[in-house]
């Protein structure tokens, strides 16, 4: 059963084509990693799913519904959540308020439930509940960004470079949590430069090169693939 399907998606920035016909499929309940070098179009691919910018051709189907032409706000309210690159938490708001923003379109009782759940996943956030989010460390901010995305009880969560600029120990924690999310039944689409860890965790993986999918296999096979090893795993 597929959660998210991209069929031959082309995306343009003005006249420049950034994605040249990308097809990706993410099944329910699995972790799919997308790896690629700088400028390969990883973030563009994610943003296209979110509708900013919209795909110029091709189809994007989320849980059986065609969302290719839907506005961003509507897409983001239909069971999909994204943890944007560089965290992008609301630094002037407290941790709790950040979480509440994540549950903007859900009821108060829902918010209460998801908030307790997020604090269970990240006890650290509970300790910092009333602290201004901008004053926390990078790792804590990343936890908050993931927590905020979870507040809308999404069926699928997209993570854009969650390991960016974090210490190895923190990265390990974050990846553990991502694995835990899968156990809870949330589908995860993970975009990473940190190819080794991303593929290790993933059920399946895609390799994106200059706007095209080059390879597509299970995470283990990709890790063992000599081309991938040369290009992304430092030989």
């Amino acid at each position: 059963m597929s959660m998210l399907v991209l069929e031959d998606v082309h995306t343009h920035y003005g006249k420049i084509e950034a994605l040249h016909g990308v097809s990706v499929e993410v099944n329910k309940g699995e972790i799919v990693s997308l790896i690629g070098a700088n400028g390969a179009g990883k973030t563009t691919l994610l943003m296209t799913v979110c509708g900013m910018p919209q795909a110029t051709s091709g189809r994007i189907i989320l849980e059986g519904r065609d969302i290719t032409r839907e506005p961003t706000a509507q897409i983001m309210r239909s069971g999909l959540a994204i943890v944007p690159e560089g965290r992008r938490i609301f630094s002037g708001l407290t941790v709790e308020e950040n979480l509440h923003m994540g549950g903007f379109f859900t009821s108060k009782s829902e918010i209460r439930k998801s908030q307790a759940h997020v604090y269970e996943l990240f006890p650290r956030l509970k300790e910092r509940e009333n602290q201004r989010a901008g004053t926390m460390s990078g790792g804590e901010q990343q936890m908050l960004a993931i927590g905020r995305a979870l507040m809308s009880s999404p069926h699928m969560i997209i993570l854009d470079e969650p390991s960016l600029g974090l210490a190895p120990l923190i990265i390990k924690q974050i990846f553990e949590i991502i694995g835990h999310l899968r156990d809870e039944g949330i589908t995860v689409f993970l975009v990473e430069q940190n190819a080794h860890q991303a593929l290790n965790l993933a059920d399946r993986g895609y390799v994106l090169e200059t706007g095209k999918i080059r390879l597509h296999d299970t995470g283990k096979n990709l890790l063992a693939n000599p081309d991938v090893q040369n290009a992304y795993l430092g030989g």
């Binding site: 961003t72 706000a73 983001m76 609301f90 509440h100 994540g102």
Partner: peptide, 23 residues
């Protein structure tokens, strides 16, 4: 909520939109 939404948009437009707020 609309006041919160204003603040969210001021703090970070991309994040606000990623949460489903309509710009």
């Amino acid at each position: 909520p609309v006041g919160r939404a204003w603040e969210a948009l001021r703090e970070d437009e991309i994040a606000a939109r990623s949460l489903g707020l309509s710009r």
